[in-house]
């Protein structure tokens, strides 16, 4: 299995999407003026969310719904609610972070990174490993519960307060609405609908993902450059260890539900990834005392690159070995 992981990691590291991420990271660290305008970055993310949601919906239309969909969403919710507690306990042991900062970071690690999920689906497609289309719905379901766990952990220390309208904002945030909306459209229109727009959402997908990861590399590199010294060794160690713990939990849940090899790998990726879009915005509203430099640098500067380069190959290889799939 180690050889499989190394082969997959080598393939992954030399893929265009990872090299684009590395280019962005290196350019930002070298203080290049290369940048992707905010509006362009948002347009790229809208395209990716729409494409991944639509393809997931079309896949469900082709293969039909089964009880595993509900079970998968259920275990996704359990993971999202539960992982922040594991992360919080680890952070209190491994780092000197305050309760508030630890709770805010923990919320990020229960939620998910949709870009990591998209990159993982791209790796699976490249290796002709199929997965359940409804994993998109699981991803959407896992965005928000971790925020509640993080706020509860913070409130135990007497900080954090319920912010009117926060839950509505979280549940109706743009990425969840677009992901679930395009998933529904894909499920309604099925293979015929996909065929009609495949020249838009299938062929250009890899190229758009490359540009988006270039931008993510730039943002991550800028964060690392400007916030160096914010994270201690313990926190960096947490940023690498926690995804592995999350992936292990995802593996168990994926097997429990009876997902395919690709589905198990995606469940591992979802549980291993950390949010850097939805949760930071929620934390700024509900937990402003927490230091955004800590959770953003950890999530985007440590865990995201780890998952993208080494994590995904590990999760895919483990899923293949455990399920016996190829």
């Amino acid at each position: 299995m180690v050889l499989d992981i190394l082969n997959l990691a080598a393939d992954n590291l030399l893929s265009p999407i990872i090299l684009c991420f590395v280019l962005g990271l290196a350019a930002a660290l070298a203080r290049s003026d290369l940048s992707v305008p905010e509006a362009a970055a948002k347009a790229l993310s809208i395209y990716l969310l729409f494409a991944i949601g639509f393809k997931g919906g079309a896949s469900v239309a082709a293969h039909g719904l089964d009880a595993r969909l509900l079970a998968s969403v259920g275990v996704g919710l359990v993971l999202s609610f539960g992982l922040p507690f594991v992360a919080f306990a680890l952070l209190r042991v491994m780092t000197g972070l305050s309760r508030i900062d630890a709770a805010a970071v923990a919320a990020h690690y229960g939620s998910i990174s949709i870009v990591t999920f998209v990159a993982a689906t791209s790796v699976l497609e490249g290796r002709a490993i199929s997965s359940e289309g409804y994993m998109v719905a699981v991803a959407a379901a896992m965005e928000a519960p971790a925020i509640l766990s993080g706020l509860w952990l913070a409130s135990r220390g007497g900080t954090g307060h319920s912010e009117p309208g926060l839950m509505r904002e979280i549940l109706l945030n743009g990425s969840i609405v677009l992901l679930l909306g395009s998933f529904a459209i894909g499920a309604i229109t099925g293979a015929e609908g996909l065929e009609r727009i495949s020249s838009f959402i299938v062929s250009p997908f890899q190229g758009v993902l490359c540009l988006f990861l270039l931008d993510m590399g730039l943002v991550a590199g800028r964060g690392l450059r400007e916030q160096r010294g914010v994270l201690g060794l313990g926190a960096v160690g947490f940023g690498v260890l926690m995804p592995l713990i999350g992936a292990t939990a995802g593996l168990g849940m994926g097997l429990l539900v009876g997902l395919s090899t690709g589905g198990v790998a995606l469940m591992m990726v979802l549980a291993a990834s950390a949010s850097y879009i939805a949760v930071p915005a929620a934390m700024r509203v509900a937990l402003p005392e927490a230091n955004p430099s800590v959770y953003l640098t950890l999530s985007l500067g440590v865990t995201f690159p780890f998952n993208l380069t080494l994590g995904i190959p590990i999760y895919v290889a483990v899923a293949q070995t455990v399920t016996g799939g190829s």
């Binding site: 992707v36 305008p37 905010e38 970055a41 945030n173 993510m216 930071p280 915005a281 430099s293």
Partner: peptide
Amino acid sequence: RSGQWTREGQVGRSG
């Protein structure tokens, strides 16, 4: 006081 930041490349409701 909270460090440097830029709007470039951001995709969430940040900045």
